[in-house]
Write a protein that binds this DNA or RNA. Structure first.
Lengths: 252, 252
DNA sequence: ATAATAGTGTCTCTCAGACACTATTAA
DNA sequence: TTAATAGTGTCTGAGAGACACTATTAT
């Protein structure tokens, strides 16, 4: 493979199109909150890498993702959306860029850079077609368990960064609203917050925050198994999260 | 150029190393705060693209950056550091990843993805060697003026995102401390905050925040041209910013 | 009526802003 | 002593947490 050096005075200037190009991939960290064994938990989607010797990390669990296809993907985020739809059937998730990881060492096949996207989705319904498609090569895992696994590539680092970002932003944004199906009740939303943060929140303070945030729209009233029915809500703008003026527990 | 499709069941699985690879670049948005014509302002470093017809955007101003060199750069951030040192001589800036921009359309030479890094540095001393190296092809511009220029590629978008990120984080972090030379006084630091935010801050509230933040270490006392000398300070940890418990002006 | 869950009112604490005040230097 | 700048003290207000209270449903 021929490589030509980028001369110092022309950084990014004259076009070395015959320079060695890194591999370019996109990976998706898809989170949801779902009831597993009666207790809701934060889950992340992993896929199993093919069990072939010529492949890097055969049989290991990895984040869903893969090479950018310059023919099909107009942009990086299109690529991320395609990868996620392939594995979950979800068409319009909340997507935000997490960051990129690139180095000579992260992929044994050569210098590679991945663009990581955080996806927040409502728990996908398990219907026949998705089961058929994802039965053996994709599964949802408890997020913290997954972060402790020995994942392929540097995916454990990326997942850890995604968890840090998510838990950090949950302190002062409306992000968890993207993790449950609409319409939802405020007690249900509070439970999602508590699952992600791993600690209980005060009901009164929580409700004030959410309603003052102005990102909710009233929907139908929802009755549960017992007790008083609750007001149902939808998200006003599914493309962006709302920032609250302060964090939960500002001074610990 | 031969391309092979990534088959659906093996996304990122079997290794299509002969697939068409996007171009991979790194760009740096280097900010500083400096006195220009007696009033300090936020400035950004731009470089002029070579004025040759075969080059994209000849003669246009652009962010410093360029192709990842798989021989020299072990990681993306190493590449960013190298690009910045090339243009400014600054060796250890505060660097944080801003995000990545990739699409089929952003570079006329083909599908390309750039990894953007935000760099915060103290105003570089204008000495003979840096002048010689950067006289005609690099210059510092007022950041808002630069954002209105017609820059090369999608660099205007990237610069706008950098400004949004910087101004956003300045509301609740110690980032501006990386924009001036150490040791600095609290009044000087406050001025940097005010320049970045574009609005005045209360002295008493500002000092309480900074000192309670615990990221400053006492240094020598510094005398100005007139009035009482001020305590000088250094940053305790040059690798990370401190987060304050609340934003400035929480409720507008 | 009771259990269960939804939703509200009130008090307190913390921290940011406003702004008046004191402190230290040079001329 | 005055100008200039550095640094402090005190009051107020907004919003988060604690927690007791009321409201609405099914049985």
């Amino acid at each position: 493979m021929k490589t030509r050096r980028d001369t110092p005075h022309a950084s990014g200037g004259t076009a070395p199109l015959d320079i060695a190009r890194p591999l370019t991939t996109v990976d998706v960290i898809a989170f949801t909150v779902r009831d597993a064994a009666a207790t809701p938990r934060l889950e992340v989607l992993l896929v199993r890498r093919p069990d072939e010797a010529h492949d890097p990390f055969p049989g290991r669990w990895a984040l869903p993702g893969g090479f950018v296809d310059v023919e099909r993907d107009a942009t990086l985020v299109d690529c991320a959306r395609r990868k996620l739809a392939q594995k979950t059937g979800v068409e319009a998730p909340y997507l935000e860029q997490l960051g990129s990881w690139g180095s000579a060492a992260r992929d044994p096949r050569g210098w590679s850079a991945t663009h990581a996207y955080l996806a927040l989705i409502a728990p996908p319904q398990v219907n026949a077609s998705t089961v058929a498609r994802t039965a053996n090569d994709a599964a949802w895992f408890d997020a913290d368990d997954a972060a402790r696994k020995r994942l392929a590539f540097d995916h454990a680092d990326i997942l850890a960064a995604a968890l840090t970002r998510l838990r950090g932003k949950v302190e002062y944004t409306s992000l968890p609203a993207f993790l449950i199906a609409e319409p939802f009740t405020l007690p249900a939303l509070q439970q999602v917050y508590e699952v992600v943060l791993g600690r209980p929140l005060d009901k009164s303070a929580f409700r004030k925050r959410m309603l003052d945030g102005g990102f909710l729209v009233e929907d139908v009233v929802i009755a549960g198994d017992a007790g008083r029915p609750a007001q149902g809500w939808r998200i006003r703008d599914r493309d962006r999260a709302t920032l609250f003026p302060r964090s939960f527990k500002s001074g610990e």
